[in-house]
Nucleic acid binder design. Structure first.
Lengths: 297, 297
DNA sequence: TTGAACTATGCATTATATTCATAGTATGGT
DNA sequence: ACCATACTATGAATATAATGCATAGTTCAA
């Protein structure tokens, strides 16, 4: 009934007061415009213009639609520009899911330069998933999954973005502090503090303690890194964290890193996306920037 | 490019999640809808939906347009309703021009019942015109002219809406008070107070004094009726007003009416409209109500 | 009164939207 | 694993609507 072209016609016609001139700017013939407005008036059952001698003047109904069009058309124009941005991959919403606690610290380093480079991309970070990060990615709840445990599935694409060593963190005066590396048995009498996740997703268990059949004296879970490090600092326990994260916190806390095993635990953070999205430049750019982040160690 | 039907499709498709069902409510075939959305996506250069197995899910660009459509469509729907109102003559803007000072008092009596009867008609009252009321009417600055001096022109239509007698107003103790009617010579020593308009538009001049070649002792002009009546009340002058207006004010002011000449001055207020507008029911209704107004005397 | 500049209109043409018929694809039950 | 079902996609044919052409009608100013 009432189409966008009609609103444009009403505006242009009011500006030019002349069918012929308005037709020109609208890239139509005068005839087409005449036919169009006649049909519109017939459909609406209302005169929108009075033929005032040689020119046209809006009626009250026409004036009403003029005010409508000056409200509507800018919104539509803006929307088309935004869609253009989406089309070029310059606008969007990057929903990032995290499956590891210290990933958040790392993510912060990536996000701020990224936001500057992509002003029309908004970032959401989600840390909890009902069905786990993988499902969230497949179900379009998130667009990018940061995880230390990639799983290769047909429609998903994982790639490592940075490597780090998972080490033991002890207080400055802890007896293990000066060891070149520790053995699983060294933890027999320690209190181990970790984030509250299942033991099979903690590398210190899966790659270090469990293979040796060792269980620490006690296991406590704490949600936040700062509190964990305060506990470690005051010799209330030891923890396992990425080396780079420990180095960043060594000025603030009296703590020290110790290698876990002779060769250390080597970890790789992966970023997963849907294969369908791999061409999106704002996603590819995020991964590029993620790989470029400089971390201590 | 982006059409209203597209916004409707986006909404309906998001509601139903299914091309087939959405096509039904949109009164289209499934095929037509499929073609349409494919073309839209091609034109915009962006995917708006992901074909998620059997159903469709909006992409981020699609979600953006969904939010757009939920802002735009209600505005358009409302506009179409309003246009419908305009078409039925139930909405509009009645701009009334006044060419006589006491007309305003009379107008107030018409307006309030009219506004109740026509809730979507707004009334503007304009009392001053650069080029006079007639031109204002012809140039669509006003839609209805209230005037005691109709001029018959081809494109305009005047009709009398009420008759009244123009009388002299004097203070309660004025010597002329008890005369059955006065002669022009009776005003020789009086101070005549009028609204500030040219003498040829004052009936007391054109129909009473000038034919007799009489000029009053003094002539003062005052803009507001209340102040004029206060002056008359305190015997600072006399004035000429419609009888009905005087009767309305006799409780408030100590004043009295006296007939001007043996047969009085008979006046007719006319309402003028453009001939083109005579079918508009909200205008015709205004005139009907104007004629029905009850006035004293 | 006339010519220039505009608007309106019938008809032919072109472009666009829609449908039909059918192939392709995912889903859930057996 | 297969099949029936319910959906979407697509090419070609068709219907519908928009546009342009040619021209007539109107207005205005010189």
């Amino acid at each position: 009934m009432l189409e966008i072209i009609h609103l444009e016609i009403i505006q242009e016609l009011d500006k030019q007061k002349s069918l012929t001139k308005a037709a020109e700017t609208l890239c139509l013939s005068q005839s087409a415009l005449s036919h169009t407005i006649k049909k519109l008036e017939q459909q609406l059952g209302v005169a929108l213009w009075v033929r005032d001698g040689r020119y046209l003047r809006l009626t009250q109904a026409g004036l009403y639609l003029l005010s409508l069009s000056s409200r509507i058309l800018p919104q539509l124009n803006h929307a088309e520009m935004m869609i253009q941005q989406y089309a070029e991959g310059k606008a969007g919403n990057l929903r990032i899911g995290l499956e590891c606690y210290p990933c958040y610290q790392w993510l912060l380093k990536v996000v701020s330069p990224y936001l500057e480079a992509w002003p029309n991309i908004d970032i959401d970070v989600k840390q909890k998933f009902k069905f786990g990060g993988l499902d969230a990615l497949e179900n379009y709840e998130i667009d990018l999954l940061v995880t230390p445990d990639p799983i290769f599935k047909e429609d998903l694409l994982f790639q490592p973005v940075f490597d780090y060593e998972q080490i033991l963190v002890v207080g400055k005066n802890h007896p293990l502090k000066d060891k070149k590396y520790i053995q699983p048995t060294d933890l027999l009498n320690e209190i181990l503090i970790t984030y509250p996740v299942p033991a099979d997703r903690l590398d210190i268990y899966s790659q270090f303690l469990i293979p040796a059949g060792i269980v620490p004296h006690q296991h406590k879970t704490i949600e936040t890194t700062d509190i964990i490090l305060q506990m470690v600092e005051s010799h209330r326990g030891v923890t396992a964290l990425p080396l780079w994260l420990v180095k960043e916190n060594m000025k603030q806390f009296k703590i020290a890193p110790v290698r876990l095993g002779k060769h250390g635990i080597s970890k790789h953070i992966h970023v997963g996306i849907r294969k369908k999205d791999q061409e999106l430049s704002y996603i590819q750019s995020f991964i590029d920037q993620a790989m470029a982040v400089e971390l201590y160690g």
